[in-house]
Nucleic acid binder design. Structure first.
Length: 153
DNA sequence: GCCAACGTTGGC
DNA sequence: GCCAACGTTGGC
């Protein structure tokens, strides 16, 4: 079992949206590194930190779990979608996405600032300079620490 | 809105 | 295969 951090802009799709839907395809990812994580490395049961990016404040808002193995991202075939990719085909899809399931919304939001201030978390990718990847692997010790911070501010 | 840090594209 | 130009991400 692995641990991940997945970024989403709450204006577009927030932890509350996932809570309402219960589960959702993580579609619209158009970055090869992030795609490779979903297609090759993410498996049902993996734990996901749901991160609010481009938010005030940014940070980890809750927990989700991978509920379905990666499959072709349907938005790439949809001409009306902003994620439509004319270079992709159903025979040879370019983009993949996993399904994630809501687990919990944190009692205490773990802000990016709090993560930055915690020395135990200084190696987390999300606090590294210039790290824009929207899906990142997370070490278990870091994952556990975030959970503790969510329990008690 | 700014802009640094990336990632992608396309001409050559 | 190089790399300049362009686009995007995301914190601030």
């Amino acid at each position: 079992m692995k641990y991940w951090l997945m970024k989403s802009e709450p204006d577009v799709f927030s932890i509350d949206d996932l809570k309402k839907k219960k589960s959702s395809l993580w579609d619209g990812v158009r970055n090869y590194q992030a795609r490779n994580f979903m297609r090759n490395d993410m498996h049902p049961g993996d734990c996901v930190l749901f991160y609010h990016s481009n938010a005030t404040p940014p940070g980890v808002a809750g927990l989700a779990t991978v509920s379905k193995q990666a499959s072709a991202d349907p938005t790439q075939f949809d001409k009306k979608s902003e994620y439509y990719d004319p270079k992709s085909s159903k025979e040879k899809p370019r983009w993949f996405c996993v399904e994630v399931q809501f687990k919990e919304k944190f009692k205490h939001f773990v802000s990016l600032e709090a993560i930055k201030q915690n020395l135990d978390l200084k190696d987390m990718l999300v606090v590294q300079k210039g790290q824009r990847l929207s899906i990142q692997p997370v070490e278990k010790k870091h994952f556990d620490k975030i959970l503790k911070m969510a329990l008690k501010p």
